[in-house]
Design a protein around this nucleic acid. Structure first.
Lengths: 208, 208
DNA sequence: ATCGTTATGCGAAACTTTTCTCACGTCAAG
DNA sequence: CTTGACGTGAGAAAAGTTTCGCATAACGAT
């Protein structure tokens, strides 16, 4: 670590933290406002984040940093895939419903990243981490012996649809559910998908 | 219809159309750019849309106007809920994958509407139409006789999670699927949910 | 065709956001 | 303690966005 990396890291964090504070109290702050709150000069803020999107984008990734890994979450969840996926979903839902503006901001920022790439016209680099995929894979690992690779792959993708920020948006905005019922719906859907995958596997193996 | 409603309607449409054209060719246009493209003066554009969000929001609702109703889509889909939901999902997916920037724009705009309400601090009016709920309800109507109201309600909410713009975003950005496989995944998930709801209903009615 | 109404256009002004320039202060190394 | 390097601050300049006032011309009705 050469030079003054720490100093830079501090002001950068100060800016991102200030952004979160303002978001949580219900604003969509400009760079100037964030700089003010962070007690950093506007010029410096612009040195770190040339435009509001880049600030939002970086804030989005740092929102996902402070959470425990799926390994930790699943540490003592046992081997039952139903319990495991429920653990993951309830954990994520609690976090996301508890901090809704921040997580909607994450979605908002990733959409902006996608548009930026689309405008640039170049090839599309993934705008999202593989976190959700990893989480579902890990939770469903006990099914590796029960399901064919194909079936497991399909199930994984299907389960990815029923929770996370996007599912939060659907349950709240288009279904009009409260957080509790929304979470129940997500868990129920995931369970149903697993149950169905298992019965389908049983059916096809009967046939041969 | 008194006065010059038509004239107003024309310039309004010109603005929204121009916005779509620019979006489709990969830009996130300012009001000035939209006005230019629409051959309308900047001042007039501002008279219709005081800020970029309001333009995006109105464009979002008008994007949903030009599509056939679910009744039309399901007109000759028969009574099989599996076929019916597949019809709806494939139709929506074709449209949304075929015009991805516009539909991502719809999601982006509704997030902005949500944030605007959140900032205002007032009560939260729904930021989305009931279209998806209506579509799923209609497709699943044949199940009204098979499932308890509760079970049908749960199933409806679950199915709502697995298609639409949010599902598009998940399949593409976090799962990395191409449009074809993404659509297959959505249809598969919906079928699995229905299948499971039916078997569960059979199981519980056996018990009594 | 003519007339009153009113949406529109134009250009300047007010305001906000972003960039620049240069001086200052702080940190690490000798 | 000094020195060189470099992150930072302050304010002005530049670029972009939104508003305003007034003249024009398009529209609907007579």
């Amino acid at each position: 670590m050469s030079g003054r990396e720490h100093q830079k890291q501090r002001t950068r964090n100060a800016l991102i933290d200030a952004y979160f504070e303002l978001i949580r109290q219900g604003q969509s702050p400009s760079i100037a406002e964030v700089a003010d709150r962070a007690e950093v000069s506007v010029a410096t803020a612009y040195r770190y984040f040339p435009n509001p999107q880049s600030l939002r984008a970086d804030a989005a990734v740092s929102a996902t940093r402070n959470m425990p890994t799926f390994e930790e979450i699943l540490a003592d969840a046992g081997d039952d895939p139903f319990v495991r996926i429920e653990t993951v979903i309830r954990h994520a839902a609690a976090m996301q419903f508890g901090d809704e503006p921040v997580w909607r901001g994450v979605l908002h920022a990733t959409l902006e990243r996608w548009f930026a790439q689309w405008e640039a016209g170049g090839e599309m680099v993934p705008v999202r981490s593989t976190a959700r995929h990893d989480g579902v894979s890990l939770a469903l690992r006990p099914l590796e012996s029960e399901l064919s690779p194909d079936a497991l792959r399909r199930l994984t993708h299907a389960v990815m649809l029923v929770w996370g920020v996007e599912a939060l948006v659907v349950t709240r905005d288009t279904a009009g559910l409260d957080p509790t019922e929304a979470t129940t719906t997500m868990v129920h859907a995931a369970h149903a998908l697993i149950r169905d995958a298992l019965t389908q596997a049983a059916v096809t193996s009967d046939r041969k």
